[in-house]
Design a binder for these strands. Structure first.
Lengths: 201, 201
DNA sequence: TGCATGGTAGACAAGTCTGTCTACCTCTGT
DNA sequence: ACAGAGGTAGACAGACTTGTCTACCATGCA
Protein backbone atom coordinates (compact mmCIF):
# COMPACT_ATOMS: atom_id res chain seq x y z
CA UNK A 1 0.00 0.00 0.00
CA UNK A 2 1.86 3.08 -1.26
CA UNK A 3 1.31 6.62 -0.09
CA UNK A 4 -0.42 7.60 -3.36
CA UNK A 5 -2.81 4.69 -3.00
CA UNK A 6 -3.66 5.87 0.51
CA UNK A 7 -4.33 9.41 -0.68
CA UNK A 8 -6.62 8.18 -3.45
CA UNK A 9 -8.64 5.95 -1.12
CA UNK A 10 -8.96 8.66 1.52
CA UNK A 11 -10.11 11.22 -1.05
CA UNK A 12 -12.54 8.79 -2.65
CA UNK A 13 -14.05 7.94 0.74
CA UNK A 14 -14.42 11.59 1.64
CA UNK A 15 -16.21 12.40 -1.62
CA UNK A 16 -18.34 9.24 -1.71
CA UNK A 17 -19.47 9.76 1.86
CA UNK A 18 -20.28 13.42 1.35
CA UNK A 19 -21.92 13.31 -2.08
CA UNK A 20 -22.93 9.71 -2.69
CA UNK A 21 -21.10 7.16 -4.80
CA UNK A 22 -22.80 7.58 -8.16
CA UNK A 23 -22.61 11.35 -7.88
CA UNK A 24 -18.81 11.36 -7.74
CA UNK A 25 -16.75 10.87 -10.88
CA UNK A 26 -13.22 9.60 -11.32
CA UNK A 27 -12.11 12.99 -12.59
CA UNK A 28 -13.19 14.67 -9.38
CA UNK A 29 -11.34 12.08 -7.33
CA UNK A 30 -8.04 12.50 -9.19
CA UNK A 31 -8.34 16.27 -9.12
CA UNK A 32 -8.93 16.33 -5.35
CA UNK A 33 -6.19 13.76 -4.82
CA UNK A 34 -3.67 15.70 -6.91
CA UNK A 35 -2.89 12.51 -8.78
CA UNK A 36 -2.78 11.58 -12.46
CA UNK A 37 -5.54 9.44 -13.90
CA UNK A 38 -3.03 6.81 -14.96
CA UNK A 39 -1.80 6.50 -11.39
CA UNK A 40 -5.31 5.78 -10.17
CA UNK A 41 -5.85 3.14 -12.82
CA UNK A 42 -2.48 1.57 -12.09
CA UNK A 43 -3.65 0.87 -8.54
CA UNK A 44 -7.35 0.19 -9.13
CA UNK A 45 -8.80 -1.79 -11.98
CA UNK A 46 -11.82 0.51 -12.16
CA UNK A 47 -14.28 2.56 -10.20
CA UNK A 48 -15.83 -0.46 -8.47
CA UNK A 49 -12.46 -1.59 -7.15
CA UNK A 50 -11.95 1.89 -5.73
CA UNK A 51 -15.41 1.84 -4.14
CA UNK A 52 -14.63 -1.49 -2.50
CA UNK A 53 -11.29 -0.15 -1.26
CA UNK A 54 -13.05 2.91 0.20
CA UNK A 55 -15.62 0.67 1.92
CA UNK A 56 -12.84 -1.47 3.31
CA UNK A 57 -10.95 1.59 4.56
CA UNK A 58 -14.09 2.97 6.20
CA UNK A 59 -14.65 -0.40 7.85
CA UNK A 60 -11.14 -0.22 9.34
CA UNK A 61 -11.69 3.32 10.57
CA UNK A 62 -15.11 2.60 12.04
CA UNK A 63 -14.16 -0.66 13.70
CA UNK A 64 -11.05 0.98 15.12
CA UNK A 65 -13.08 3.84 16.51
CA UNK A 66 -15.81 1.59 17.90
CA UNK A 67 -13.50 -0.92 19.54
CA UNK A 68 -11.50 1.92 21.06
CA UNK A 69 -14.68 3.58 22.29
CA UNK A 70 -15.86 0.36 23.90
CA UNK A 71 -12.42 -0.42 25.29
CA UNK A 72 -12.29 2.94 27.06
CA UNK A 73 -14.35 1.46 29.90
CA UNK A 74 -14.97 -1.97 31.40
CA UNK A 75 -16.09 -4.82 29.12
CA UNK A 76 -19.71 -5.93 29.11
CA UNK A 77 -22.40 -3.57 30.33
CA UNK A 78 -20.30 -0.37 30.47
CA UNK A 79 -18.80 -1.00 27.03
CA UNK A 80 -22.25 -1.50 25.49
CA UNK A 81 -23.43 1.73 27.03
CA UNK A 82 -20.27 3.46 25.85
CA UNK A 83 -21.21 2.50 22.29
CA UNK A 84 -24.33 4.62 22.48
CA UNK A 85 -22.47 7.51 24.05
CA UNK A 86 -20.04 7.12 21.18
CA UNK A 87 -22.87 7.31 18.66
CA UNK A 88 -24.03 10.48 20.37
CA UNK A 89 -20.54 11.90 19.92
CA UNK A 90 -20.57 10.91 16.26
CA UNK A 91 -23.98 12.46 15.53
CA UNK A 92 -22.84 15.70 17.14
CA UNK A 93 -19.53 15.73 15.27
CA UNK A 94 -17.42 15.10 18.34
CA UNK A 95 -15.92 11.88 16.92
CA UNK A 96 -13.11 13.30 14.81
CA UNK A 97 -12.01 9.90 13.54
CA UNK A 98 -15.33 9.46 11.73
CA UNK A 99 -15.54 12.88 10.12
CA UNK A 100 -18.59 15.06 9.76
CA UNK A 101 -21.70 12.96 10.30
CA UNK A 102 -23.55 12.08 7.09
CA UNK A 103 -25.21 8.87 8.18
CA UNK A 104 -23.63 5.45 7.87
CA UNK A 105 -21.53 5.12 4.73
CA UNK A 106 -22.53 1.47 4.46
CA UNK A 107 -26.26 2.12 4.74
CA UNK A 108 -25.96 4.90 2.18
CA UNK A 109 -23.96 2.67 -0.17
CA UNK A 110 -26.49 -0.16 0.20
CA UNK A 111 -29.20 2.26 -0.83
CA UNK A 112 -27.34 2.91 -4.06
CA UNK A 113 -26.64 -0.78 -4.65
CA UNK A 114 -29.89 -2.35 -3.47
CA UNK A 115 -29.26 -5.61 -5.28
CA UNK A 116 -27.82 -7.84 -2.52
CA UNK A 117 -25.76 -9.75 -5.09
CA UNK A 118 -23.50 -6.80 -5.88
CA UNK A 119 -20.02 -6.77 -4.29
CA UNK A 120 -20.75 -3.33 -2.83
CA UNK A 121 -23.83 -4.55 -0.99
CA UNK A 122 -21.95 -7.62 0.19
CA UNK A 123 -19.18 -5.42 1.59
CA UNK A 124 -21.76 -3.38 3.51
CA UNK A 125 -23.30 -6.53 4.89
CA UNK A 126 -19.86 -7.76 5.94
CA UNK A 127 -19.18 -4.52 7.82
CA UNK A 128 -22.42 -4.86 9.75
CA UNK A 129 -21.44 -8.41 10.64
CA UNK A 130 -18.13 -7.09 12.01
CA UNK A 131 -19.96 -4.64 14.26
CA UNK A 132 -22.37 -7.32 15.38
CA UNK A 133 -19.49 -9.64 16.29
CA UNK A 134 -17.89 -6.94 18.42
CA UNK A 135 -21.16 -6.20 20.21
CA UNK A 136 -21.71 -9.91 20.76
CA UNK A 137 -18.36 -10.20 22.57
CA UNK A 138 -19.73 -7.85 25.19
CA UNK A 139 -23.29 -9.15 25.41
CA UNK A 140 -21.84 -12.57 26.13
CA UNK A 141 -20.34 -11.12 29.29
CA UNK A 142 -23.73 -9.84 30.37
CA UNK A 143 -26.05 -12.68 29.44
CA UNK A 144 -26.19 -16.04 31.07
CA UNK A 145 -26.60 -18.05 27.89
CA UNK A 146 -25.58 -17.88 24.26
CA UNK A 147 -29.07 -17.41 22.83
CA UNK A 148 -29.80 -14.46 25.08
CA UNK A 149 -26.45 -12.89 24.22
CA UNK A 150 -27.19 -13.22 20.51
CA UNK A 151 -30.63 -11.77 20.92
CA UNK A 152 -29.37 -8.82 22.94
CA UNK A 153 -26.68 -8.14 20.34
CA UNK A 154 -29.33 -8.21 17.61
CA UNK A 155 -31.48 -5.73 19.48
CA UNK A 156 -28.65 -3.36 20.33
CA UNK A 157 -27.38 -3.41 16.74
CA UNK A 158 -30.87 -2.72 15.50
CA UNK A 159 -31.16 0.21 17.89
CA UNK A 160 -27.85 1.46 16.58
CA UNK A 161 -29.08 1.32 12.96
CA UNK A 162 -32.28 3.04 13.95
CA UNK A 163 -30.41 5.81 15.73
CA UNK A 164 -28.05 6.40 12.79
CA UNK A 165 -30.91 6.47 10.29
CA UNK A 166 -33.05 8.74 12.44
CA UNK A 167 -30.15 11.10 13.08
CA UNK A 168 -29.44 11.32 9.37
CA UNK A 169 -32.84 11.47 7.66
CA UNK A 170 -34.60 13.47 10.35
CA UNK A 171 -31.60 15.68 11.12
CA UNK A 172 -32.02 14.60 14.72
CA UNK A 173 -28.62 14.38 16.44
CA UNK A 174 -30.26 13.48 19.76
CA UNK A 175 -31.40 10.06 18.55
CA UNK A 176 -28.69 8.09 20.33
CA UNK A 177 -28.82 10.07 23.55
CA UNK A 178 -32.54 9.50 23.96
CA UNK A 179 -31.99 5.74 23.69
CA UNK A 180 -29.69 5.49 26.68
CA UNK A 181 -32.36 4.79 29.33
CA UNK A 182 -33.80 1.99 27.18
CA UNK A 183 -30.34 0.55 26.55
CA UNK A 184 -29.58 0.63 30.28
CA UNK A 185 -32.71 -1.38 30.93
CA UNK A 186 -31.98 -3.91 28.22
CA UNK A 187 -28.46 -4.64 29.40
CA UNK A 188 -29.31 -5.18 33.04
CA UNK A 189 -27.79 -8.62 33.67
CA UNK A 190 -30.84 -9.95 35.49
CA UNK A 191 -32.94 -9.37 32.40
CA UNK A 192 -30.60 -11.12 30.00
CA UNK A 193 -31.81 -14.62 30.78
CA UNK A 194 -33.33 -17.07 28.36
CA UNK A 195 -36.44 -14.89 28.20
CA UNK A 196 -36.20 -12.90 24.97
CA UNK A 197 -36.82 -9.36 26.13
CA UNK A 198 -37.64 -8.23 29.62
CA UNK A 199 -40.95 -10.03 29.56
CA UNK A 200 -42.08 -12.25 26.72
CA UNK A 201 -45.81 -12.57 26.44
CA UNK B 1 -52.98 14.72 -12.99
CA UNK B 2 -53.31 13.01 -16.37
CA UNK B 3 -52.93 9.30 -17.02
CA UNK B 4 -49.57 9.78 -18.77
CA UNK B 5 -48.27 11.70 -15.81
CA UNK B 6 -49.30 8.86 -13.51
CA UNK B 7 -47.55 6.29 -15.69
CA UNK B 8 -44.34 8.32 -15.72
CA UNK B 9 -44.32 8.76 -11.94
CA UNK B 10 -45.08 5.10 -11.30
CA UNK B 11 -42.33 3.96 -13.68
CA UNK B 12 -39.83 6.44 -12.23
CA UNK B 13 -40.58 5.27 -8.71
CA UNK B 14 -40.19 1.63 -9.67
CA UNK B 15 -36.81 2.24 -11.29
CA UNK B 16 -35.51 4.67 -8.66
CA UNK B 17 -36.46 2.28 -5.86
CA UNK B 18 -34.92 -0.75 -7.55
CA UNK B 19 -31.72 0.77 -8.92
CA UNK B 20 -31.13 3.98 -7.02
CA UNK B 21 -31.89 7.49 -8.21
CA UNK B 22 -28.57 8.50 -9.77
CA UNK B 23 -28.30 5.16 -11.52
CA UNK B 24 -31.51 5.69 -13.50
CA UNK B 25 -31.55 8.00 -16.53
CA UNK B 26 -34.41 9.88 -18.12
CA UNK B 27 -34.09 7.76 -21.26
CA UNK B 28 -34.69 4.57 -19.32
CA UNK B 29 -37.74 6.09 -17.68
CA UNK B 30 -39.35 7.19 -20.94
CA UNK B 31 -38.56 3.86 -22.58
CA UNK B 32 -40.14 1.86 -19.74
CA UNK B 33 -43.08 4.27 -19.61
CA UNK B 34 -43.72 4.04 -23.36
CA UNK B 35 -43.80 7.81 -23.48
CA UNK B 36 -42.02 10.42 -25.59
CA UNK B 37 -39.30 12.48 -24.01
CA UNK B 38 -41.17 15.68 -24.82
CA UNK B 39 -44.19 14.41 -22.92
CA UNK B 40 -42.10 13.86 -19.82
CA UNK B 41 -40.60 17.33 -20.03
CA UNK B 42 -44.03 18.85 -20.62
CA UNK B 43 -45.13 17.53 -17.22
CA UNK B 44 -41.89 17.81 -15.27
CA UNK B 45 -39.45 20.67 -15.43
CA UNK B 46 -36.51 18.32 -15.03
CA UNK B 47 -35.25 15.19 -13.36
CA UNK B 48 -35.39 16.68 -9.88
CA UNK B 49 -39.06 17.55 -10.25
CA UNK B 50 -39.71 13.96 -11.27
CA UNK B 51 -37.76 12.65 -8.29
CA UNK B 52 -39.82 14.84 -5.96
CA UNK B 53 -43.03 13.61 -7.60
CA UNK B 54 -41.90 10.01 -7.14
CA UNK B 55 -41.09 10.66 -3.48
CA UNK B 56 -44.48 12.28 -3.00
CA UNK B 57 -46.22 9.35 -4.68
CA UNK B 58 -44.33 6.85 -2.54
CA UNK B 59 -45.30 8.83 0.55
CA UNK B 60 -48.97 8.52 -0.44
CA UNK B 61 -48.63 4.79 -1.05
CA UNK B 62 -46.75 4.14 2.16
CA UNK B 63 -48.96 6.29 4.37
CA UNK B 64 -52.04 4.67 2.83
CA UNK B 65 -50.67 1.21 3.48
CA UNK B 66 -49.54 2.03 7.02
CA UNK B 67 -52.75 3.74 8.12
CA UNK B 68 -54.77 0.88 6.66
CA UNK B 69 -52.56 -1.66 8.42
CA UNK B 70 -52.99 0.13 11.72
CA UNK B 71 -56.71 0.67 11.17
CA UNK B 72 -57.27 -3.06 10.66
CA UNK B 73 -57.34 -3.51 14.44
CA UNK B 74 -58.19 -1.40 17.49
CA UNK B 75 -56.50 1.97 17.96
CA UNK B 76 -53.70 2.33 20.46
CA UNK B 77 -51.78 -0.72 21.60
CA UNK B 78 -53.05 -3.19 18.97
CA UNK B 79 -52.51 -0.73 16.14
CA UNK B 80 -48.91 -0.09 17.22
CA UNK B 81 -48.27 -3.80 17.33
CA UNK B 82 -49.93 -4.19 13.94
CA UNK B 83 -47.38 -1.76 12.50
CA UNK B 84 -44.57 -4.18 13.31
CA UNK B 85 -46.50 -7.13 11.94
CA UNK B 86 -46.99 -5.00 8.85
CA UNK B 87 -43.25 -4.38 8.61
CA UNK B 88 -42.72 -8.12 8.85
CA UNK B 89 -45.12 -8.57 5.93
CA UNK B 90 -43.26 -5.93 3.96
CA UNK B 91 -39.81 -7.43 4.57
CA UNK B 92 -41.11 -10.83 3.45
CA UNK B 93 -42.81 -9.43 0.36
CA UNK B 94 -46.32 -10.02 1.58
CA UNK B 95 -47.27 -6.33 1.38
CA UNK B 96 -48.20 -6.07 -2.29
CA UNK B 97 -48.96 -2.35 -2.08
CA UNK B 98 -45.31 -1.61 -1.28
CA UNK B 99 -43.72 -3.81 -3.93
CA UNK B 100 -40.66 -5.99 -3.57
CA UNK B 101 -38.72 -4.94 -0.48
CA UNK B 102 -35.59 -2.92 -1.22
CA UNK B 103 -35.34 -0.97 2.00
CA UNK B 104 -37.01 2.36 2.60
CA UNK B 105 -37.08 4.53 -0.51
CA UNK B 106 -36.67 7.64 1.63
CA UNK B 107 -33.66 6.35 3.55
CA UNK B 108 -32.07 5.26 0.28
CA UNK B 109 -32.78 8.63 -1.31
CA UNK B 110 -31.36 10.47 1.71
CA UNK B 111 -28.18 8.44 1.31
CA UNK B 112 -27.84 9.78 -2.22
CA UNK B 113 -28.66 13.35 -1.19
CA UNK B 114 -26.90 13.58 2.15
CA UNK B 115 -26.94 17.37 2.17
CA UNK B 116 -29.98 18.17 4.33
CA UNK B 117 -30.57 21.39 2.41
CA UNK B 118 -31.53 19.62 -0.82
CA UNK B 119 -35.25 19.37 -1.64
CA UNK B 120 -34.92 15.59 -1.95
CA UNK B 121 -33.59 15.25 1.59
CA UNK B 122 -36.27 17.60 2.86
CA UNK B 123 -38.97 15.48 1.23
CA UNK B 124 -37.57 12.37 2.94
CA UNK B 125 -37.56 14.15 6.26
CA UNK B 126 -41.16 15.25 5.71
CA UNK B 127 -42.22 11.66 5.03
CA UNK B 128 -40.67 10.48 8.28
CA UNK B 129 -42.52 13.27 10.07
CA UNK B 130 -45.79 11.98 8.57
CA UNK B 131 -45.13 8.48 9.88
CA UNK B 132 -44.20 9.85 13.28
CA UNK B 133 -47.43 11.85 13.45
CA UNK B 134 -49.48 8.75 12.71
CA UNK B 135 -47.66 6.72 15.34
CA UNK B 136 -48.10 9.52 17.83
CA UNK B 137 -51.87 9.44 17.38
CA UNK B 138 -51.82 5.92 18.75
CA UNK B 139 -49.23 6.34 21.48
CA UNK B 140 -51.37 9.16 22.87
CA UNK B 141 -54.10 6.60 23.48
CA UNK B 142 -51.69 4.43 25.42
CA UNK B 143 -49.72 6.93 27.46
CA UNK B 144 -51.05 9.00 30.27
CA UNK B 145 -49.29 12.21 29.34
CA UNK B 146 -48.12 14.03 26.25
CA UNK B 147 -44.40 13.76 26.95
CA UNK B 148 -44.56 10.00 27.43
CA UNK B 149 -46.58 9.63 24.22
CA UNK B 150 -43.99 11.60 22.29
CA UNK B 151 -41.17 9.60 23.75
CA UNK B 152 -42.83 6.30 22.96
CA UNK B 153 -43.51 7.43 19.39
CA UNK B 154 -39.85 8.40 19.03
CA UNK B 155 -38.71 5.01 20.27
CA UNK B 156 -41.12 3.03 18.11
CA UNK B 157 -40.22 5.02 15.01
CA UNK B 158 -36.55 4.49 15.75
CA UNK B 159 -37.16 0.75 16.10
CA UNK B 160 -38.97 0.86 12.77
CA UNK B 161 -35.99 2.55 11.07
CA UNK B 162 -33.62 0.08 12.65
CA UNK B 163 -35.70 -2.86 11.47
CA UNK B 164 -35.93 -1.55 7.90
CA UNK B 165 -32.20 -0.85 7.73
CA UNK B 166 -31.26 -4.19 9.25
CA UNK B 167 -33.62 -6.07 6.94
CA UNK B 168 -32.12 -4.33 3.94
CA UNK B 169 -28.38 -4.15 4.55
CA UNK B 170 -28.08 -7.46 6.38
CA UNK B 171 -30.60 -9.27 4.17
CA UNK B 172 -32.41 -10.17 7.37
CA UNK B 173 -36.19 -10.28 6.80
CA UNK B 174 -36.79 -11.39 10.38
CA UNK B 175 -35.74 -8.04 11.86
CA UNK B 176 -39.27 -6.80 12.55
CA UNK B 177 -40.61 -10.09 13.83
CA UNK B 178 -37.86 -10.39 16.43
CA UNK B 179 -38.77 -6.97 17.77
CA UNK B 180 -42.33 -7.85 18.67
CA UNK B 181 -41.70 -8.98 22.27
CA UNK B 182 -39.79 -5.77 22.97
CA UNK B 183 -42.52 -3.66 21.36
CA UNK B 184 -45.16 -5.44 23.44
CA UNK B 185 -43.27 -4.53 26.57
CA UNK B 186 -42.79 -0.91 25.56
CA UNK B 187 -46.46 -0.31 24.81
CA UNK B 188 -47.84 -1.75 28.01
CA UNK B 189 -50.01 1.11 29.31
CA UNK B 190 -48.71 0.86 32.84
CA UNK B 191 -45.20 1.56 31.61
CA UNK B 192 -46.05 4.61 29.56
CA UNK B 193 -46.04 7.03 32.45
CA UNK B 194 -43.87 10.07 32.82
CA UNK B 195 -40.87 7.79 33.36
CA UNK B 196 -38.98 7.69 30.07
CA UNK B 197 -38.57 3.99 29.44
CA UNK B 198 -39.67 1.16 31.69
CA UNK B 199 -37.21 2.19 34.35
CA UNK B 200 -35.09 5.29 34.11
CA UNK B 201 -31.89 5.08 36.06
C1' DT C 1 26.47 7.90 -17.60
C1' DG C 2 22.42 5.32 -18.52
C1' DC C 3 18.30 3.25 -17.52
C1' DA C 4 14.27 1.51 -15.04
C1' DT C 5 10.56 3.05 -12.04
C1' DG C 6 6.83 5.66 -10.96
C1' DG C 7 4.91 9.56 -11.50
C1' DT C 8 2.37 13.96 -14.20
C1' DA C 9 -0.53 16.09 -17.71
C1' DG C 10 -3.84 15.59 -20.57
C1' DA C 11 -5.63 14.14 -25.26
C1' DC C 12 -8.71 10.89 -26.80
C1' DA C 13 -12.39 7.18 -27.67
C1' DA C 14 -16.76 5.65 -26.95
C1' DG C 15 -20.49 6.02 -24.58
C1' DT C 16 -23.94 8.23 -21.39
C1' DC C 17 -26.35 12.12 -19.35
C1' DT C 18 -30.01 15.93 -19.40
C1' DG C 19 -32.71 18.80 -21.89
C1' DT C 20 -34.40 21.09 -26.48
C1' DC C 21 -36.20 20.93 -30.77
C1' DT C 22 -38.32 19.58 -35.29
C1' DA C 23 -41.56 16.95 -37.82
C1' DC C 24 -45.30 14.33 -37.78
C1' DC C 25 -49.55 11.99 -36.20
C1' DT C 26 -54.20 11.47 -34.09
C1' DC C 27 -57.83 12.61 -31.72
C1' DT C 28 -61.78 16.10 -30.23
C1' DG C 29 -64.82 20.04 -30.47
C1' DT C 30 -66.79 23.45 -33.20
C1' DA D 1 -63.91 20.60 -42.63
C1' DC D 2 -60.60 22.27 -39.79
C1' DA D 3 -58.04 24.12 -35.86
C1' DG D 4 -55.89 23.09 -31.72
C1' DA D 5 -54.41 20.03 -28.10
C1' DG D 6 -51.66 16.44 -26.86
C1' DG D 7 -49.15 12.91 -28.17
C1' DT D 8 -44.89 10.07 -30.74
C1' DA D 9 -40.27 9.43 -32.58
C1' DG D 10 -36.06 10.69 -32.47
C1' DA D 11 -32.24 13.91 -33.97
C1' DC D 12 -29.33 16.95 -31.75
C1' DA D 13 -26.36 19.96 -28.52
C1' DG D 14 -23.38 20.15 -24.95
C1' DA D 15 -21.69 18.38 -21.09
C1' DC D 16 -20.18 14.61 -18.55
C1' DT D 17 -18.80 9.48 -17.85
C1' DT D 18 -15.11 5.67 -17.56
C1' DG D 19 -11.07 4.00 -19.14
C1' DT D 20 -6.81 4.00 -22.45
C1' DC D 21 -2.93 5.91 -24.31
C1' DT D 22 0.97 9.00 -25.59
C1' DA D 23 4.57 12.07 -24.26
C1' DC D 24 7.17 13.69 -20.89
C1' DC D 25 9.66 14.29 -16.33
C1' DA D 26 12.23 13.22 -12.02
C1' DT D 27 14.45 10.19 -9.04
C1' DG D 28 17.36 6.34 -7.50
C1' DC D 29 20.47 2.85 -8.62
C1' DA D 30 24.14 0.31 -11.12
Amino acid sequence: MTEKQQIIIRTALKLFYRQGIHAVGINEIIQQSGVAKKTLYSYFSGKEALILAALNYRDEIFMGWLSQTMASTNPGQPALLAMFHGLDDWFNNRATALGNFRGCFFINASGEYTDPQTPVHQACKAHKANVHALVLQHTKLVCENQAAALQLADTLCLLKEGAITTAMVQEDPGAAHRLIPLVKTLIQPALCTSAPHIADT
